[in-house]
Amino acid sequence: MISTLQLLRSDEHHLGSAPVTSLTGKSLEKTLPDAKAPGNFENYLLDALNYVNGKQTSSDVIAQQLIVDPDSVDVHDVTIAMAEANLSLTMAQAVIDRMIKGWTEITTTR
C-alpha cells in the first residue's frame, strides 16, 4: 500500500522541512506500527540509502569548501569523497537492480 510509505528526510538539503503530504492531501505517515522493527528489509534498505545519501552530501559539502576556502582542504580529499559517493551509489544501484529483477521474476512466473 502506497499510504504506508514515509519519506525519510534526515538531511535538510532535501525538500525543506515542511511535512510531506500525498497527492490526495493525506499525510504520508506510517500506518503500520511494526514497520520500524529491526531486521525489517525496508528499514535495512532505507538505512543503506541514507548512508549513500550521506556520502553524497558530504562530498557536496567538501566540494563547496574547496571552492569557498581552497586552503582548508586537500584536493585528494575532495576526489576521494567523490569516489566514495560514486562507489556507494553504484552499490546501491546494484542492490536495487537485483531486487527489481527478483520482483519481476516473481511477478512474471507462469
Partner: peptide, 10 residues
C-alpha cells in the same frame, strides 16, 4: 583502505 591511503596522501 581508501581512507588509510588518504592519510598517506595528506
Amino acid at each position: 583502505s581508501i581512507n588509510i591511503a588518504a592519510t598517506g596522501m595528506s
